[in-house]
Amino acid sequence: MPYVVTEGCIRCKYMDCVSVCPVDCFYAGETMLVIHPDECIDCGVCEPECPAAAIVPDTDPRAGRWTQINAEYAQKWPNITQKGTPPEDADAWNGRDGKAALFSPAP
């Protein structure tokens, strides 16, 4: 049961989750992070660290299509092992609905 980053991360990209991940399974895109499903050890330490509540188990109904997006883009985007600086307007995007249209496939 790997964890999945959902649309709540888009444009927030806080990266608090990266700091606690013991296996460095996060990958960074232009607008969000994803979790590599084959690297995630299901420890769950990332989930409560996300200020945007964007990380859920893959069995959660909110994971939906984001499960495939995480698997696909973890193969394409660079691995991130340290917390970076979130976007300046991250707080303004936190909690907004309908951010899926803002997803960018760019690394």
Score class of each variant (00 low, 15 high):
residue 1 M to F: 05
residue 1 M to G: 09
residue 1 M to I: 07
residue 4 V to T: 07
residue 5 V to E: 06
residue 6 T to H: 13
residue 7 E to H: 13
residue 8 G to C: 03
residue 8 G to V: 04
residue 8 G to I: 03
residue 10 I to V: 07
residue 12 C to R: 01
residue 12 C to A: 04
residue 12 C to V: 05
residue 13 K to N: 11
residue 13 K to Y: 13
residue 14 Y to Q: 08
residue 15 M to T: 09
residue 15 M to K: 10
residue 15 M to R: 11
residue 15 M to S: 08
residue 16 D to K: 13
residue 16 D to Y: 10
residue 17 C to T: 14
residue 17 C to E: 14
residue 17 C to N: 13
residue 19 S to F: 12
residue 20 V to T: 12
residue 20 V to F: 10
residue 20 V to I: 13
residue 21 C to T: 06
residue 22 P to D: 08
residue 23 V to M: 05
residue 24 D to T: 08
residue 25 C to S: 10
residue 25 C to I: 10
residue 26 F to Y: 12
residue 26 F to H: 11
residue 27 Y to G: 00
residue 28 A to Y: 11
residue 32 M to I: 15
residue 32 M to L: 15
residue 32 M to T: 15
residue 33 L to H: 12
residue 34 V to G: 13
residue 37 P to E: 02
residue 37 P to N: 02
residue 38 D to Q: 06
residue 39 E to S: 07
residue 39 E to I: 06
residue 42 D to A: 13
residue 43 C to H: 08
residue 43 C to P: 13
residue 45 V to N: 12
residue 46 C to Y: 15
residue 46 C to T: 15
residue 47 E to V: 15
residue 47 E to L: 13
residue 48 P to S: 14
residue 50 C to W: 09
residue 51 P to K: 05
residue 51 P to N: 05
residue 52 A to E: 04
residue 53 A to E: 11
residue 55 I to E: 12
residue 56 V to L: 11
residue 56 V to M: 11
residue 57 P to W: 08
residue 57 P to N: 10
residue 59 T to C: 05
residue 61 P to C: 06
residue 61 P to L: 04
residue 61 P to A: 07
residue 63 A to K: 04
residue 64 G to R: 15
residue 64 G to K: 15
residue 65 R to G: 14
residue 66 W to A: 14
residue 66 W to D: 13
residue 67 T to F: 12
residue 68 Q to M: 09
residue 68 Q to F: 07
residue 69 I to F: 04
residue 70 N to M: 03
residue 70 N to G: 00
residue 70 N to R: 03
residue 71 A to Q: 03
residue 72 E to N: 03
residue 72 E to W: 01
residue 76 K to I: 06
residue 76 K to C: 03
residue 78 P to K: 09
residue 80 I to W: 12
residue 80 I to F: 11
residue 80 I to D: 11
residue 83 K to G: 08
residue 84 G to L: 07
residue 84 G to S: 05
residue 84 G to K: 07
residue 85 T to L: 04
residue 86 P to D: 04
residue 86 P to V: 03
residue 87 P to W: 07
residue 89 D to S: 11
residue 89 D to R: 12
residue 90 A to Q: 00
residue 90 A to F: 00
residue 91 D to A: 07
residue 91 D to T: 08
residue 93 W to D: 00
residue 95 G to S: 07
residue 96 R to Q: 04
residue 96 R to L: 03
residue 98 G to H: 00
residue 99 K to P: 03
residue 101 A to N: 05
residue 103 F to R: 04
residue 103 F to K: 02
residue 105 P to T: 00
residue 105 P to E: 01
residue 106 A to Y: 02
residue 107 P to D: 13
